[in-house]
Write a protein that binds this DNA or RNA. Structure first.
Length: 203
DNA sequence: CTAAAGATGTCCT
DNA sequence: GGACATCTTTAGA
C-alpha cells in the first residue's frame, strides 16, 4: 500500500552524455525518468510526465535565441546543469541544459507525478490535493523547493537535485503538442507528455 | 533610465 | 473564461 513512502530509485544520476544531445530528443527521453530532490533528511521524488524543448539556435521562443545574457548564460554552458529562472514576479521554472557546451539548449520540466515525500510537498504547496502538487512548471518548483539558488547546479553529481532512472521501467506513450504560454515559435510540436497521465498540466 | 512583457497560478464569476 | 498578483530581465531611448 504505502508505496508513496518508498523510493523508486536505484540507479545513479543520468550522465552528462544523456544531456549532451539534441534538445528535442532529450525532452522526449526525460519522460518517465525520476526527478530527485534531497533536502537534508527528506527526499522528494517525482516521475517526469511533461516537458518542453527550447533550443537556442533555431527557436524564437527560447530565452537563448538572441544570444547570451546574464540570465540565460547557463543555457550556453555544459549540458546537465539546472537552468532556473524567475518569472511573473513570483514563480520559478526548472530546466535542464542540453546540447554540447557553447550551444544553447534546455528542456523545461513542466510536470511530475509525485512519488515520494508527498507530505512535504503538501506543506510547501499548501494543499491536500495530490493532483495539484506538481502539475505545472511553477507548482513543481514550489513542491520540490527549487529556487534560483539551484541555478547552474550540476545534475550529474547526485547532490541536492538530479534525475535518474526508475527501478522499474515501463513503456512510455508520448504525446507531442504545442508549447504553452509562448508567442514566437508557437507552431512547433515541442511539448511532450505521457499519454493520459493525470498529472500533466494541460491536455 | 524607463517601460513592458513574461516558458504561471489562483481566485473569481 | 478572465482579472490580477508581483518583480526580474531585457530592450530600447
Amino acid at each position: 500500500m504505502q508505496s508513496s513512502h518508498r523510493s523508486i530509485v536505484t540507479s545513479r544520476p543520468l550522465r552528462r552524455a544523456f544531456y549532451e544531445r539534441n534538445t528535442v530528443r532529450v525532452a522526449k527521453e526525460l519522460l518517465g525518468k525520476v526527478l530527485v530532490r534531497k533536502l537534508g533528511d527528506t527526499r522528494l521524488e517525482g516521475i517526469i510526465v511533461e516537458t518542453e524543448a527550447y533550443r537556442g539556435y533555431d527557436d524564437a521562443a527560447s530565452h537563448a535565441y538572441r544570444g547570451p545574457t546574464r540570465r540565460n548564460q547557463v543555457m550556453f554552458g555544459e549540458p546537465g546543469h539546472a537552468y532556473v529562472y524567475f518569472t511573473y514576479g513570483m514563480h520559478y521554472c526548472l530546466n535542464v541544459t542540453t546540447e554540447p557546451a557553447g550551444q544553447a539548449g534546455a528542456v523545461l520540466i513542466r510536470a511530475v507525478q509525485p512519488v515520494k515525500g508527498i507530505v512535504e510537498m503538501k506543506k510547501r504547496r499548501r494543499t491536500e490535493h495530490l493532483r495539484d502538487l506538481s502539475n505545472g512548471p511553477a507548482k513543481l518548483t514550489q513542491a520540490f523547493a527549487v529556487t534560483k539558488a539551484l541555478n547552474g547546479h550540476d545534475l550529474t553529481a547526485g547532490k541536492k537535485l538530479y534525475i535518474t532512472e526508475p527501478s522499474v521501467t515501463e513503456p512510455v506513450h508520448i504525446t507531442a503538442s504545442t508549447r504553452i504560454g509562448i508567442k514566437a515559435g508557437a507552431e512547433k510540436l515541442w511539448r511532450f507528455s505521457i499519454r493520459r497521465n493525470p498529472f500533466v498540466s494541460k491536455l
